[in-house]
Structure formats: C-alpha cells, structure tokens
Design a protein around this nucleic acid. Structure first.
Lengths: 212, 212
DNA sequence: TAGATTGTTAATCGATTAACAATC
DNA sequence: TAGATTGTTAATCGATTAACAATC
C-alpha cells in the first residue's frame, strides 16, 4: 500500500494532530499554509513540519507560497482512514469503557468497521452496542475463523487480555487497541496501539504534579 | 517534594509499567530481582532499568544480588500515588466516557480524590457518578474558588475543552487529563496528561496497519 | 575466592532543530 | 527582481544501550 520512506513512530503519532489543525484551517476558509505558520499554531517548529510532510509523500509544497490545505488533508485522510476500505474490528469487553470506546470504532468515517462485540457475562450476551449484537466470548474462535477481523479493541477489566492476546494473534488479529491494564504479550510484528493504559497516564500525571 | 535529579518524561511514563511488573513479582512471592531479569520480563534492557532506577532516588540495589522488590514498590508507590495525600480532582463531562473514566479517579488507592463532576446537560445535573453529585457547569467557577481542585479530567465530546482550559488554569487547575478530541491551549508549566486522544491513537493504528 | 550484579561513565542511536541553496 | 518558503543536508540534542570498575 504505502511506498514512501516509512514514517517513524513519533511522526505517525503526530499525524492526527496535523489532521485536526488542517481541518480547522479548512473550516475557516484558509486554502494555503506555510510550515512556519502551521508550526506556530501547533506549538512546534517549521523544521519539524517540513520534515514530517516530506516523509509522507508527495505533498506539493510551493516555494514562496506554502502548502495546499486541501491537498494535505486529502493525503492525511488517505493515510489515516485508508481510501474507502474499512478495517474490520471487534470489541472485547462491553462494560462502560467498552461501550464508550466502541462509538469511535463504530463511526465509519474513522476508518474502522465494528463487526462484533464479545463479553464473558451472560447478562451482556444478546444486548447490543452501537447496533452490534454482543456475543459470548466462547464464540470468539469460530467468529474469527469465519469473518477475519483485523483489529481487536480490548476493554477487559483486568486479567485475561494478556492470555487472550496470543490467541487473537493466532486467529489473525493484526492490531490491538489495548485498554486493559496489563501489557500484552504479543510478538512482533503485530501492531499495538499505545496510549491505552488509562490508569498509567493518570499515575504519571500524579507523579509529575507532586514533583513539580 | 521530590529532591532527586528530575526524571525525563520517557522515564515517568515507564513508572507505572515497573509498578505493575513488580506487583506481579511480589504476588508470586519473589523478594529480590536483578535488572537483567526484570528487563527480560518487561522486554527492555538491563541498562535502561538501572538508569531509570538510579534517577528516582535511593533504590539500594545490592551488587551481586539485585534490588529488593518491596523497597522498589514502596518507592514507586510514593512517586505515583503520593504518600497518603490525595490530589483533589474534578470531572468535566459526565457522558459515557466520563463515567467510565471517573471510576479510576474515584478509587482512592490511585492517588486522586474525585470531589466534583460537572456537565452542561440539565438532564445530568443532580444525578451522581461514583457517589459524586453532578453539578451544572455554571457552578464551576464558584466551586473551584471554594474547593481548589488541582486536576481536571476533561471528557467533553468536542469543542469547549480548548476554551475551558484557560479558565481552569486561572481557577488554579495544575494538571489536565484530556480526553477531549482537541488540543488544549494551556501555557507552561501546567501538566497535561498525554495519551488521551482516544481517536488519535486509533487513527494512528489504522495508518500503521495499512502501511505495514 | 569466584560469580553476579550494581552504579555510572562513555558510545551509539535516533529524533529534533538549524541552516541554506533552490525556486516560486 | 525581491521576498518568502520549500526540500534537504548538516548540526544538535537527548535518550538508549554498552562497557566496566567497584563490590556484594
């Protein structure tokens, strides 16, 4: 799919931020932007903006003018959401957090397609999240073999994610969004979405606050 | 409070992970651990473990033996959760995400104390989250002046967080946990908890999956 | 003592920032 | 043309990893 020099993880993590700022510019009718001005708005440097842009392909910046907002957005949309095709995703764990998070995946413009949800609790089974019927975790194996989801969103309350991740990889899952409060033991090259230990980030916040 | 060489952000972000692994070791009855063994379990290097440990104080590693699990945990607990005192926090936005997230802050062993919750919707006002009554956002100003919360957890659905952050800083908020899908415009030195753009991390995941 | 492991300094690696020629 | 801005190479900065003397 991609054929340009691969972006480093820090660059990848910045893409959504570029996307949001450019969307805002577009909304206010701005059609062209210089790296200097964009950097100043985003609180970064013009150098970084240009380096980043140059690593995700043919951005068509014009010397003396700047970059076309529309063309940048078009490029970012392709990178972030794919070009039309949606990544089939499953939700595992349909508690409060699972329900809150699932809304994002269920929104097709975000590039994912929620095709199933699983829970251990018999109470949950048969109910729906975002129009998707909740299945019992026992059906996971059969389901994956038939429908080949690519992404798993783990919203299990505690243990289980670690053990489950291995199974999921065997069943063809290529990416995880892990909200479980444990580390997955997934071998390279599966992609794990970072930024997901809700508790971790708050713990760190507390540390920083107390030590400023 | 802290008087040791300040830890860099990457180090701070690793603290919760150390905490979890050491807790697991403790639970399985292990009292002493070498940097080499801990690193191997966590998927990092012994060098990094030692460098990290040496930057958060007097860890009392014993040459030839290793580190005391208990003493490391004691130290990490102090760093992450404070020594008994809890950071007063408020929740802004009590939708699904706000409710899910608030459980963490409302659990006192995590080092925070949820003292209030606010929402714009009149429907929400008067209801409770985790035993805390939901107030109307109009009361935010009066409340902060009286009770001096230090941390704000932003679970607003879209706009608003950006504009609100400035006000909150003026009202004495020192740290944010921002789940809102926008960047805050908060001046240094307020602490912003990263890892919080739920959508962002999924977008990035999609990009990585499609480009592997 | 011999083996293991720390604490710390030095080397490496990678990401960010600066510089500047090319050019719109 | 003159001013502005890109694309890209070089310099800097910081974090990770390696090395090793000290020592339990």
């Amino acid at each position: 799919m991609a054929n340009y020099a691969k972006a480093s993880l820090p660059v990848i993590k910045r893409l959504p931020k570029y996307y949001r700022y450019l969307k805002a510019l577009q909304a206010s009718g701005i059609t062209s932007i210089s790296s200097r001005e964009l950097a100043s708005q985003m609180g970064t440097t013009a150098s970084q903006v240009r380096q980043d842009f140059n690593c995700f392909g043919d951005v068509n910046g014009r010397q003396g003018i700047g970059y076309s907002v529309e063309s940048l957005l078009h490029m970012l949309e392709g990178l972030l959401f794919g070009n039309g095709e949606l990544l089939p995703a499953i939700l595992i764990g349909t508690g409060r957090l699972g329900k809150a998070v699932s809304r994002f995946i269920a929104t097709s413009t975000n590039g994912f397609r929620l095709i199933a949800a699983f829970d251990v609790s018999e109470d949950e089974v048969g109910k729906t999240v975002n129009g998707i019927q909740i299945r019992h975790i026992n059906e996971l194996d059969t389901f994956c073999r038939q429908y080949h989801p690519q992404v798993a969103v783990l919203c299990l309350p505690r243990e289980g994610a670690m053990q489950l991740s291995g199974t999921l990889v065997e069943l063809g899952i290529r990416g995880f969004w892990n909200f479980s409060h444990y580390d997955l033991s997934v071998p390279y090259p599966q992609v794990i979405c970072e930024n997901v230990h809700l508790g971790d980030s708050l713990m760190s916040l507390g540390y920083r606050l107390r030590n400023e």
